[in-house]
Design a protein around this nucleic acid. Sequence first.
DNA 1: TTGAAAGCGCTACCAG
DNA 2: CTGGTAGCGCTTTCAA
Lengths: 337, 337
Amino acid sequence: MTNRSITIKDVAKKANVSVATVSRVINGLDRVSDATRKRVLKIIQELNFVPNTMAASMVNKKTKMLSVVVPEIQNPFYTAVIEGTVEVAKREGFFTLVLSTNGDESEEEDFLESFLGKNVDGIILIGSHKEAEFYRGIQKPTILVDRYFNDCDHDGVMIDNYRGAYEATKHFIEYGHERIAMIDGEHDFNDGKDRFWGYRQAMLESGLAPDPDCHKQGRWTEADGYRLTIELLQSKRPPTAIFAANNVLCKGAIRAIRDLNLRMGEDISLIGFDENELAQFVQPQVTVVRRPTREMGVQAAEMLVRKIREVPMEQGNPKCVVLGVELLKHGSVKKLK
Amino acid sequence: MTNRSITIKDVAKKANVSVATVSRVINGLDRVSDATRKRVLKIIQELNFVPNTMAASMVNKKTKMLSVVVPEIQNPFYTAVIEGTVEVAKREGFFTLVLSTNGDESEEEDFLESFLGKNVDGIILIGSHKEAEFYRGIQKPTILVDRYFNDCDHDGVMIDNYRGAYEATKHFIEYGHERIAMIDGEHDFNDGKDRFWGYRQAMLESGLAPDPDCHKQGRWTEADGYRLTIELLQSKRPPTAIFAANNVLCKGAIRAIRDLNLRMGEDISLIGFDENELAQFVQPQVTVVRRPTREMGVQAAEMLVRKIREVPMEQGNPKCVVLGVELLKHGSVKKLK
DNA sequence: TTGAAAGCGCTACCAG
DNA sequence: CTGGTAGCGCTTTCAA
């Protein structure tokens, strides 16, 4: 497309200075007289010279790029995290590079091995790998988000999944529900697992024996949210309340309830995890556990930038920040007593 | 984090060969005896050596990276395009780098000037700039998607916005509607403009004088979709049909109709542009103009890869592919006669 | 089949 | 304040 691009040498020659001087001007260092600086700047303009950042990076080993790796880019939860990190990164002078892996471990690996993965200054990772070992292999400042692994040698930003599920379940119980179901996906990561344990613990504490028929597990998809909800509601002893353990599952549940012609918050109570468009649309709105999605990205980016800048020696043990969640009460939970 | 990373030199020394040979092995070139190849490969394993792609790129000026630049990453239309391009790119051996500009021109520029922008092999751009000149300045294989500019010196992949709007409007007319409103946003780009002209043309052709009260313009946001719909429906002479010119506007319209307690496809008819979650959720479902979103990304990526590989001389005049749209008829349009 | 050496474009150190 | 120069890690002639 373009012929040979013009380099620092061309500028130097035309300005009758050394490349060293041009470099100084480019980087805004002092030790350059005002006269020469002006002259060089002018030539740069004239020649329309743009420094080759890659060459620079070769020597100083910095690219001012961050990457944020997520499993899927269609889920608003992830895009919210991305937004948060991008905002901070920009403020701090980094570009952010987004990669969606489709939850595929090998795609994640490929990326980290690639030009991009190798050359960013730091990584914010919502990983798809299930073993700490993989993460330990990442030789670069990295912050794990949402999914954490012990002994992974990296810092993390999580939310209190356990508590979110616990509070949702408790809320049902306070309102008099006893036959409370939960639908979720595979327990591949701590987030899913913790939500299940939160639910379970709340049940136990209230003396409600966890009924295996009330815990339906599928994949974390809207289709399965739909299917599992139908199964629950058409069983011989349907629950009076359902806790849908993430946003897409919740959407499926909402559809199912609608399709079965049941009245939300009347015939059946529902709580979702994470806000979602449908939950806000239906009437009454669906009560959900809200987590600070954007904030997670912000925190992660701030931690990452700090880590990139700090001298390696100063780095202590990996720390994992846990952000709180909040139950947004709407009208989808019926008061039984 | 990591100390000095090991380089091609280390491998060469340990294998008792020259760096040239190691380089050949890395790149799978022939002219290396099987014996040495094996030996080098073994050392590479042992040392856990990973070639520095950046250094390589410095000399051969290729990075095997593509970037796709979109205005917003929250809109499913854009993510669908992204998915399409990523798929093709991967198949062709390129990594895709996603950038969301928030529709901000300067952010778009910053990106193109950045390390990333400078070092990708090609760009797929849903631009936020409004003048062809800007695009002409991009000295790199680029495909414009969705928004096109004449004389921009780049190829493009568009859809037939005009026809989509035209058909939607015609559909209303066939069903007996006469007071047909349209809501849209700023006419900053061809897409929005064309939709308006398609609507207008359909009206004129059918002898329906375009009533200025029936064209409400705001921004391309859900909030404005809501607001404009309310305005229309509460005016002294409300329309019987509304064409919402994009997905978010349509969502706003759906909410508004619901909040006014009107029956979709009965009290008011609606057609949206682009599918969206709410349109599929409500009953009856909303009739929409569907465009091949994913396919746009696929086409664009294929064109881009071809362009990157072809010798500069072969490049003819910029060409713009226009993909068709389809009216997905659901129950949101009432038959008046 | 292999190696030596000249870069790619820039930075940073050391002299002057 | 300015210039010379040695790399950064790799590729690619050109010779051997």
